[in-house]
Simulated scan of single mutants.
Amino acid sequence: MNLASSSTGTELLLLLFAFVLSMVIGVERQIRQKSAGVRTHTLVGTGAAVFTLISAFGFPSVLFGTDVNVDPSRIAAQIVSGVGFLGAGVIFMHRDMVRGLTTAATIWMTAAVGMACGAGMPVLAVAATALHLITVGPLARLTKYLPSPDRRKLITVRYVDGAGVLRAILATATSMGFEASVLRTEVHREDGRQQVRASMRFTGRTPLQSLVIALDDLEGVTGVQLADDDYD
């Protein structure tokens, strides 16, 4: 698709393409209740398309008849860098667990879709959107059946003794689809309270990082640590 002599109507059509495709990606993120949803992804994709359209078609008319050359790829490179900072805003750490990487990558992907639309390549933008939906949909479900390094991990939980915390731990794990087995417990005093240190093995399809964060938020739990499984 050659847009060297693109009309305003064509530019608006490309912008609409970017808006719709970015919104589709945002709806998928919203349904999965991620930190960045429809509005964020729609704005990122549409904004990237606007910047790309400006860089590709905005300056030649202004510089017509001059000897100044414009490199449209310079703005495209700045879009990639700018969106990288935006994506970093949805990544956070909780203890030694990192969350938000997939959402950050999705924001980056949405910007790429918007840039493809702005550059006059709607077919590529549609293909990229379809591949994104495949990656976070069927492919994500397929990876649940692949061998996971989590199967070689143990969770060590420290909690206050005699307060019913162990029941809450097991109930939380069960509600998240895990099967739990307690391998070893040690009782000790810490901060003037009797506490239990339990080494536990959890098996399930959900990443253990999610369980670690959930257990750490339970009342009576004083510490959660993910470690290698040395009991086999």
Rank of each mutant, 00 (worst) to 15 (best):
S5R: 10
L13R: 11
L15C: 05
F17T: 12
F17E: 04
F17C: 15
L21D: 01
L21Y: 01
Q30K: 15
Q30V: 06
Q30M: 04
Q33S: 14
K34I: 02
L43I: 14
V50Q: 04
I54V: 10
A56V: 06
G58F: 13
G58A: 13
F59N: 06
V68T: 09
N69L: 11
P72K: 06
S73P: 02
I75F: 09
I75L: 15
Q78K: 14
I79T: 00
S81A: 14
V83E: 00
H94K: 11
V98H: 10
T106C: 13
A111T: 05
V113K: 12
M115R: 07
C117T: 10
G120V: 06
G120P: 01
M121C: 06
P122E: 10
A125F: 04
V126G: 08
V126N: 05
A127E: 04
A128N: 07
I134E: 03
V136L: 09
P138C: 12
L139K: 14
K144Q: 11
Y145M: 07
P147A: 10
D150Y: 05
I155A: 06
I155S: 03
R158W: 14
R158K: 13
R158T: 08
A163P: 00
R167K: 02
L170H: 05
A171R: 06
A173F: 03
A180D: 09
G192Q: 01
R193D: 00
V196H: 05
V196P: 00
A198L: 08
A198F: 11
S199F: 07
M200R: 00
L208N: 02
Q209W: 01
S210D: 15
A214K: 05
A214E: 15
A214M: 08
T222I: 02
Q225R: 11
